[in-house]
């Protein structure tokens, strides 16, 4: 932090930009044909962890006295199942497992944010990877990918539970109801417009809420890390900022534990609500 202000600022900017850069794999021309290897690999590892734990305990599940681990898995499953039952009144085999997957997966992805911000990139650099950005939910691709999947499921649920006739009819007759043919014709475009906005807003708000929280969280961790950037044992500033960094980092990590859980829960809860709204008639 000491010395030339120009080079310190440059070092800081470079440090932050470096942290926000994905490990990319270009598979074709154009900016779309790129795969963020770090996001995908971390996600797959977390999916493997989740499925490994969940399927193992599912296979071993018996009606006898459960062990601690079994009880933990069943507690999570039971909580999600109860939430779904309270909110969603139709019958669906998919919605409860989907909700569980959303909650656990997003929680695990968010949890990576609590790993010290330089630790995994440092490991990656030692392993020869120039860039490594490890929090999958701080990548808009992940959150938008999940919310678009949810969006498609909402449409599928609407079609399945209402039937195509009612599904398309509702696009023109809800939310504004009116009696009389003229009124109906007049309100049809308004209703359609509102419906389209409503449907479009859902995945966007779902994904941006999660992405924004995690991106901001990651950025603040990076900024806290910047406090002692370039510092060494010979710099006085390192001794001044070190304790501050420790306290602030601890406070933000502790607060972030709440954020990551809450965001995972909100994503799950809104998915359940959207799906049950799609299945119910207006």
């Amino acid at each position: 932090m000491s010395g030339n202000a120009q080079s310190a600022a440059g070092g800081m900017t470079e440090y932050i930009q470096h942290h926000l850069h994905h490990l990319e794999w270009r598979v074709g021309p154009g900016s779309f044909w790129v795969i963020n290897i770090d996001t995908v690999v971390v996600t797959l590892l977390l999916i493997t962890l989740f499925l490994g734990v969940f399927l193992t305990s599912a296979r071993k599940a018996t009606a006898g006295v459960p062990g601690r681990f079994q009880a933990f898995v069943e507690m999570v499953v039971g909580t999600v199942d109860e939430l779904v039952r309270e909110t969603f009144h139709g019958s669906s085999k998919l919605i409860a497992p989907l909700s569980l997957t959303i909650f656990v997966l997003i929680f695990l992805m968010n949890f990576i944010d609590l790993v010290p911000v330089d630790f995994l990139p440092w490991l990656g650099r030692e392993a020869g990877l120039h860039y490594l950005r490890v929090v999958p939910t701080a990548d808009l691709n992940t959150t938008l990918g999940m919310s678009l999947t949810v969006f498609l499921l909402i449409q599928y649920f609407g079609l399945k539970h209402k039937g195509p006739g009612l599904f398309f009819k509702e696009m023109f007759t809800a939310p504004f109801h009116v009696h009389g043919t003229l009124g109906k014709i007049l309100l049809a475009p308004v209703n359609l417009l509102l419906r389209l906005i409503e449907e479009a807003v859902r995945p966007i708000s779902l994904s941006l809420r999660l992405f924004g929280n995690m991106y901001a969280g990651e950025l603040i961790f990076i900024l806290i890390a910047v406090l002692t950037l370039g510092g060494s044992l010979t710099h006085g500033a390192a001794y001044a900022f070190g304790p501050v960094q420790l306290v602030v980092d601890f406070a933000w990590t502790a607060f972030h534990i709440l954020v990551i859980t809450l965001q995972a829960f909100i994503f799950m809860m809104l998915t359940i609500v959207y799906l049950s709204m799609a299945a119910e008639q207006h």
């Binding site: 598979v27 900016s31 779309f32 044909w33 790129v34 795969i35 963020n36 996001t39 995908v40 996600t43 797959l44 999916i47 989740f50 499925l51 969940f54 399927l55 305990s57 599912a58 296979r59 599940a61 898995v73 069943e74 499953v77 085999k93 998919l94 409860a96 497992p97 989907l98 569980l100 997957t101 959303i102 997966l105 999958p136 990548d139 808009l140 691709n141 992940t142 938008l144 990918g145 999940m146 678009l148 999947t149």
Partner: peptide, 27 residues
């Protein structure tokens, strides 16, 4: 926004399907 979007969406959905088919009913 890039190809990662589709991969992540599919991975998520596949996970949900596996959970639905192989884990949830047992538990």
């Amino acid at each position: 926004i890039n190809l990662t979007l589709i991969i992540q969406g599919l991975a998520f959905f596949a996970t949900a399907l596996v959970v639905m088919k192989y884990g949830w009913p047992h538990i």
